[in-house]
């Protein structure tokens, strides 16, 4: 493989790593902090389109190495879409299958994409009433399949499997360290499974324990796919509070409006979780004044057009002939 010429023998050689990092792009018009440059790490510049390529690859390789995937036995995984899309596309190219368990509220684009890349899909009605001990409907159903039909399914389990965070310790962290030449002072990330924040933070802190790690999360009742409010974080076993300095709770509408601003002012076609992270970064720029920030932008806007029409008034106006 040749990263310079970008010629590859198979798509997996393109996956990001220290020698083939996803790009860091500076925010120009929308960052008022003259002494606090902000760089967005564009995780959608990766073969299957999101930050989840990293975890999916690590999880899949681990299952292969351990001989868990044999003819007639595929994977079952709870996903808000991105992990499923990465895992299914990788799996099909390597001769395996994936049953993706998704909550009904994820965008239609993601459900269709899952089917397009060859996942089997099981959609469950959304969480009924968050309560202690209940966990999450899609996680419980995936675990049920893996337990009741172990001959048919193995559960990669992105919410509990340390390989998820390890992927970021091995790739995202070293990439950022090298790309910023060690200058990074603040890392901004969102919380879903918490694989991104835990793995990246652990690596960067091993290089410089003073790096501030800021996590953002949407307010309760949100519809930002991939993210969890504190009240839903109990299922994310990879969450390690000691690896995070601040958790900012941000009005979830801002995820969509900030994403739109990034699209229209910076040419960065960022999705809603990136929008939320950007809002969090702006708050810290105002608070800390000086620094060198890196924001991990998980995916781009293409899968969220339906969600955007719910949050951006007038967006669908004029899309039909009069």
């Amino acid at each position: 493989m040749n990263h310079q010429a970008r010629v590859y023998e198979n798509v997996f050689e393109m996956l990001p790593s220290e020698v083939n990092p996803t790009p860091l792009v500076r925010i120009n018009k929308l960052n008022p902090g003259a002494e606090f440059p902000l760089y967005a790490k564009l995780e959608w510049v990766s073969p299957f389109g999101s930050v989840k390529d990293r975890a999916a690859w690590e999880l899949l390789r681990d299952l292969e190495d351990r001989g868990e995937l044999v003819p007639g036995r595929g994977m079952v995984e709870p996903t808000s879409g991105n992990t499923g899309i990465s895992l299914a596309a990788m799996a099909r190219a390597r001769g395996h299958r994936l049953l993706a368990i998704v909550p009904n509220k994820i965008p239609l684009e993601k459900k269709l994409l899952l089917k397009i890349v060859g996942a089997d899909l099981e959609v469950i009605s959304d969480e009924l009433c968050p309560a202690p001990g209940l966990g999450d409907g899609s996680i419980n159903l995936a675990k049920t399949h893996a337990k009741a039909s172990a001959q048919k399914y193995v559960l990669p389990n992105q919410y509990e499997n340390p390989k998820n965070a390890e992927a970021h310790f091995k790739t995202t962290g070293p990439e950022i360290w090298k790309q910023t030449e060690g200058k990074i002072t603040h890392l901004f990330a969102s919380l879903g499974t918490c694989g991104t924040v835990s793995g990246t933070s652990k690596f960067l802190r091993s290089k410089n324990p003073n790096i501030k790690v800021i996590a953002v999360q949407p307010t309760e009742g949100h519809d930002v796919p991939g993210l969890r409010n504190v009240s839903q974080l109990g299922v994310s076993k990879l969450f390690d509070p000691s690896l995070v300095d601040d958790i900012l709770e941000i009005d979830f509408h801002l995820a969509y409006t900030r994403a739109l601003e990034l699209c229209q002012n910076e040419g960065l076609l960022a999705g809603p979780s990136s929008g939320l992270i950007f809002e969090g970064a702006l708050e810290i720029v105002r608070r800390d004044k000086k620094g060198h920030g890196v924001m991990i932008f998980p995916d781009n806007i293409f899968k969220y057009t339906t969600n955007m029409t719910k949050h951006i008034p007038g967006l669908s106006d004029g899309t039909q002939p009069k």
Binding site: I124, L128, G137, N140, T144, H145, K147, A148, S149
Partner: peptide, 11 residues
């Protein structure tokens, strides 16, 4: 169950 499909998936 509330989710009437859960039994079928595994009990």
């Amino acid at each position: 169950d509330v989710d009437t499909k859960a039994y079928e998936a595994g009990h």
